[in-house]
């Protein structure tokens, strides 16, 4: 935290279980700390205090050395919100995937080509795109490439930080389908960070709702969405545009909620 600014606790006592092939949705509004949780998980950010434990092992420590980094990469990978920005614009599809694969195992020649093709198949990227560069791909293709790259190290957990938020709805559906397939075939656990309840409902088994850094509700997606216990969860669900939806009413409830929170 910068000097002179009050410290903000971005994430506090967040804890969850994820079995292989399971999917957890992390929801909350902007600034609720969900992205911070995701970035701490993959090691892009270090908690000021406390620890990040995965399978009982402390992950907050920045692991040095090639072996440590490699091991970590094989545990968790991440897919980012901005598909173009998350790809190196100088690398073609095959270079991008080849680079990621070679970090994990010394593949070369035909073996490498086969592994690249396999990755592309698993995210349904057409083989003809092999030598395309990111600027030649569509948004959906870029995001599929980013997912394929993340899969190159065969991670156990894939963190998706608003991974479909920048895509239009039809493309979103394709990506979500690809993710569901990957989950079923590879048994990878997914952590889906999103503000979009509809997306969470589509891909997640469990959901965790975060508000100002605190996890406030956790459970099976259908339970939480149909029978929310916490006021904030209710508010979040009612904020989703739909039939008989009144923005003024949502705003009013929001103000009421914030007022209550500040008094508390």
């Amino acid at each position: 935290m910068g000097k002179g600014r009050p410290a903000v606790v971005a994430a506090n006592k967040v804890s969850f279980d994820l079995a292989p092939g399971e999917s957890l949705g992390l929801v909350g509004e902007s600034g609720s700390g969900k992205t911070t949780v995701a970035r701490m998980l993959v090691g892009l950010e270090t908690p000021d205090s406390g620890s990040v434990e995965i399978a009982g092992r402390d992950r907050a420590l920045n692991r040095r050395g090639a072996a440590g980094r490699k091991e970590r990469a094989a545990e968790i990978q991440m897919v980012f919100q901005d598909p173009y920005g998350s790809l190196d614009r100088r690398l073609s599809v095959s270079q991008c995937l080849g680079q990621a694969l070679k970090l994990q195992s010394p593949l070369r020649g035909d073996e490498l080509q086969r592994a690249i093709t396999e990755l592309m198949n698993s995210v349904r990227l057409e083989p003809r795109l092999l030598s395309s560069f990111p600027h030649q791909l569509s948004g959906g293709q870029r995001q599929r490439l980013a997912i394929a790259r993340a899969l190159a190290s065969s991670p156990k957990l894939l963190v998706l930080d608003e991974a479909v938020s920048a895509l239009d709805v039809s493309v979103q559906a394709q990506i979500l389908q690809v993710l569901n397939e990957i989950r079923a075939e590879r048994g990878i656990a997914l952590l889906f960070v999103s503000h979009d309840l509809a997306v969470i409902q589509e891909v997640s088994d469990k959901v965790m709702v975060m508000y100002r850094g605190d996890p406030i509700e956790q459970g099976i997606v259908s339970d939480v969405l149909q029978n929310p216990q916490h006021d904030y969860t209710k508010l979040l669900i009612s904020s989703v545009p739909g039939l008989g939806w009144d923005p003024d009413e949502v705003m009013a409830r929001r103000r009421e909620f914030d007022l209550l929170q500040s008094v508390r």
């Binding site: 892009l44 990978q77 919100q81 901005d82 993340a150 190159a152 190290s153």
Partner: peptide, 14 residues
């Protein structure tokens, strides 16, 4: 600030 750098870090590139 572009996320591809983060992606490389997560991949374990030094």
């Amino acid at each position: 600030s572009r996320p591809y750098i983060d992606a490389y870090r997560i991949q374990g590139v030094s």
